[in-house]
Nucleic acid binder design. Structure first.
Lengths: 210, 210, 210, 210
DNA sequence: CATGAATGAGCGTTCATTCAT
DNA sequence: AATGAATGAACGCTCATTCAT
């Protein structure tokens, strides 16, 4: 049986109507982030999260139908930051400036909580969590940014995916190595991103001509 | 040292003296690869590996002192393929040809077993497994390749790390998306690698001149 | 310290805050005693204890961080009885009466649960459990009793240790043989204890005079 | 099911007719002693014994039908030493001299291999091993020694049991404490033994007259 | 006979989840 | 609602024992 029939929900159990409940939910999600950051995947369990949040395990299950729902909520919280960054980026004048802004944002976030981003990347790719997080929308938005930066790019959504992957790869590796020099990492990341775009632009143009 | 001193060993427990044993060891490692590929990290447990290998759980523990040792053995088996590829790459005439060969090799391997590579990347970075796998040596060797490709590059080892990260990022993402078009992926990866190198070369040169 | 630093705790995991929990803890310890008594060391495993206590294995581990902690708890429960007996003994007028009271108490306890005492003696001496039980304090208190009984005894703490050993030896052997005649055993034990003291007193005095 | 129906044998599987086999058996038993002494009950397993003996686990099972049989063999080997000591003791002129000789022998043996004696005592009392070792005969012989020392003693076999228990208790405790002063231990043991006998003799005589 | 690879029942322990209070 | 005691499936691992070579 690879497919469980009684599909667990990933949505929070209730739309918290009272602000108290909202606070509780937020504190649980933040606790999840802290546990993940400080204890790693190994120490990421519901009891630890509840303890860190200062609520009972029962309360945690009042708001989240299961561990995965909590994970999804955390992923979405972190994803939202990218959304926000993206929104800011889209206010920038030039496309290049927008991209540079995003690179800076990614680096800053990563170096703040090095483990968190990486572990969420891992969780994100768990089969069964796939599709529960709004990655596609994010990439679409990112594709828009790219289209502005390189208007004639033939496949902006592919480029968006690649640049995501490149950024994630470099930034996670930096976190793992314990890099702290933001300037330097940002510099290299710019090289990777704009280097990729410059090459892809030309080549793809050529390959399309075929 | 805050780690526990009486660490479990990661080395295989015994050098199998009978040929039957060698087969058993190999079949266990291969079973580990298959379980990881098909069931993911969640289903990667020693009982499942033993079952898939067609041996008893006791046999598994006769050759591996613990689950982590098995993981390390699998990582090393996969790492060896890179070593071999690297060795071939170093026979290539030009540095660029060497790099291109490696890119091709990475893509081919990845698309054969998409999950495996990614999950091993994850495991590799588990605290407690760190340092048990000869990543540094691999990167040093890779730095040599880069030095040949871009002789005047100021920090080949940094570039090696970044290119590793870029490749891993793109190739894992491709696996996750279920990409199967080797040509296309290879093409984009070349763009990323050579794009990065072209930009980094110049910028760093400039920044060094300061 | 050659012992592993990240030692399992032997202290109960949590102070049970609800009265239901207190009962559970007590029932687990009592179940441990029963299992040890009826199944011996061989059958003394956490699952059997949980089953006998009528609780799940999870509950057992909620209160005891490991099997050893449970063993220690049981040892301490039994040790406390000696403490209490000792306290009563110290209220007796004469030292000899105190000693006789203790002998009687030891015999009575032993013949109630013959195996338990013996098996706990064994566990008590397991390296790794050593020092987790307050044996020294017990012997100190006992030394006080002896000092009252034989004021001029030169090494009361040595005598205390010897009398402990003698009592334990005789009483365990009696349990093993299935003796049930309390009177008779008590009689022989008195002979051993007072016989030892009478001889030791004189000899040691002489050897000290040297 | 407390009684296993297919009763394991405790006798060595075959009377070793060739001297090579005899040596193998002896080396296995000695290895068992060494493992028990150095690793404790926890480390006492058949594989460890075979390894220490320098034979294969298969060979061990060729000569001993099971672990318990090995344990019994070791117990009997150690018991034989007492037999021999007893035989020597019986050549002594006076009964008191015989007893003193035995006390000395017990102390010397114990302090040579402190753990061994204690752990064997423990194993000896395992239900299922009971009666497989010739304890009664040993105590009968010992009773003879006592009868010589205290001719008018009313219950020499009871006294024999008690003195065994006393000696074992004191000597094991000494081993546990790491005592090394043979003289001192022997002195206290003599006090215990002769103290017990002096008191028991009189009291029992009186109680018998009733 | 000797070897040692192989077996698998069984143990200690964890942790997601439920539910009586 | 909130609590936290209770549950139990499932995992990592050991070791007595067997059996093909």
């Amino acid at each position: 049986m690879t497919e469980r029939s009684a599909q667990k929900q990933f949505k929070p159990r209730k739309a918290p109507s009272q602000s108290r409940a909202e606070e509780t939910v937020a504190s649980i999600v933040e606790a999840a982030a802290q546990v993940l950051e400080s204890e790693g995947l190994e120490g990421f369990n519901t009891n630890a999260v509840a303890r860190r949040a200062g609520v009972s395990i029962g309360s945690l299950y009042q708001y989240f139908p299961g561990k995965d729902a909590l994970t999804v909520a955390l992923i979405q919280r972190e994803t939202k930051r990218f959304y926000d960054d993206m929104a800011v980026a889209l206010t920038k004048r030039g496309g290049k400036a927008a991209l540079e802004y995003l690179i800076g944002a990614a680096v800053r976030q990563q170096l703040q909580r090095p483990m968190l981003a990486k572990l969420l990347d891992i969780e994100e790719s768990r089969p069964g969590l796939r599709g529960e997080v709004g990655k596609p929308e994010l990439e679409n938005l990112f594709a828009t940014v790219i289209q502005r930066a390189i208007p004639k790019h033939p496949h902006p959504e592919v480029a968006a995916g690649d640049l995501f992957a490149i950024t994630r790869g470099m930034v996670d590796a930096a976190g793992e190595r314990g890099e702290t020099d933001i300037e330097n990492l940002e510099h290299r990341l710019r090289a990777a991103v704009f280097g990729y775009l410059s090459k892809i632009g030309k080549d793809q143009a050529i390959s399309d001509r075929r």
